[in-house]
Design a protein around this nucleic acid. Sequence first.
DNA 1: CGCTTAGTTGATGTCACTCAACCCTAGTGG
DNA 2: CCACTAGGGTTGAGTGACATCAACTAAGCG
Lengths: 242, 242
Amino acid sequence: MSVAADLSEADRAALRLAVTRVRDVPAHEILIDDGDRPEVVHVVLEGFACRYKLLSDGGKQIMAWLVPGDFCDLQVAVLGRMDHTIATVSASRIGAIDRAQIDVLFNTSPALSHALWWASLVQEAILREWLVGIGRRDAAGRMMHLLCELHARLTAAGLAQDDRFTFPLSQSELADTLGISPVHVNRTVQLLRHEGLIEWTRNELVFKDVARLCSLACFDPNYLHLERRRRRGAHLDGRDAS
Amino acid sequence: MSVAADLSEADRAALRLAVTRVRDVPAHEILIDDGDRPEVVHVVLEGFACRYKLLSDGGKQIMAWLVPGDFCDLQVAVLGRMDHTIATVSASRIGAIDRAQIDVLFNTSPALSHALWWASLVQEAILREWLVGIGRRDAAGRMMHLLCELHARLTAAGLAQDDRFTFPLSQSELADTLGISPVHVNRTVQLLRHEGLIEWTRNELVFKDVARLCSLACFDPNYLHLERRRRRGAHLDGRDAS
DNA sequence: CGCTTAGTTGATGTCACTCAACCCTAGTGG
DNA sequence: CCACTAGGGTTGAGTGACATCAACTAAGCG
């Protein structure tokens, strides 16, 4: 989903220059709150962040995981007011782009505005897939599918080696993502472990059998629209994973 | 969500002219299928359509209801390939815009491209709210919230009078939307009826107590971002509801 | 008038929730 | 070096919301 993947060097440079105010943010810190009308757009450079909404009964639903390369709140450049909250999950490095600067980029480079819209639409496609999962899959199916998706996204971004990547979420946060209780997340994780599908220790997740996991999850990566990105792992900071 | 609401007369005319090939489509007909690479973008002029995905086990999850004024598949103009299916729910009048024409509009009118992006982002916001509902609300809560949302959207579009509007979905389609079984939808509908909240006969839904329903559903219309549309009920066909 | 589709109802089953206890690890301070 | 604490993680028992199955009714339609 890294928006820079398909851009010309000039456009990527323009995007890089637009990122002012890079800062390190500790885990579990709110970046933008529900109702805010921020003047900057945030982008994740390192670490994990998430979108979520809080319910009146204290419940919480996470609606997106934001990994390095993802824009957090591009929509405020158009909609103005946030209708949900964005917070870090792990300690992260977060970049900020002035909202006005987004408009400038949008008007000067058709390729760039196209790329921004593309990124926004892929996030929407992911959201649709999550809806299908929560609506129609059981706990294990949801979890497997979600992990396959994360694996695909991180691999495409060059952030996973040997089917192994950092996974900084607690079981409780996973529960708020999948729409099930923390206790049931625990039992489901153990199921996947005993099936020899994953290892999950502290901060790291290892896929023991990617093919079987994807098959069990009925995971079809089409919706991630990765085929567009011929240059795998191109990041905002200009590094390529190669 | 009618995209034309905030546009200048010239932009609205341009959009209207872009709609070639208006056709009447019977109920339950597929407009664009999963995997298609269509050359046109569809817009609902009359009737109801929906987005959905089919699962391998025969299950179905509806991910959006598309009402008059909504674009069905704007995303193919950017992403190229459909990752879900769009079909009519009731007999509908559907307009089509050439994909190339979208690009022209996009490049010639900043206001129009802004409006298109806006429409796409509002659909995303609705999707997020549906995710929260399916993830964290019980059956009655989901249904009430969904009905409040539809009421708000149709009222904003000038398609509801006296808290009364056409509602062409079957209980089974409602079930595929809410992620519960048709039988449980039936019981939940009866609950709302006995509570004196709604009347639902054939094709028409009547809200008996909007305030109580919205309050019970914890419905907060912020996420619909309706505040932007000062001209309520402006449609692609140029009519205003007044 | 039979056929079909949608809605309704009851009985039974199950997946996941809640509550509660316990464990394990890391961090802290004595 | 150890006692204490706090936040996950783990486990079991009991409960509840919703699913499934199956039968029946009502409404359109040739």
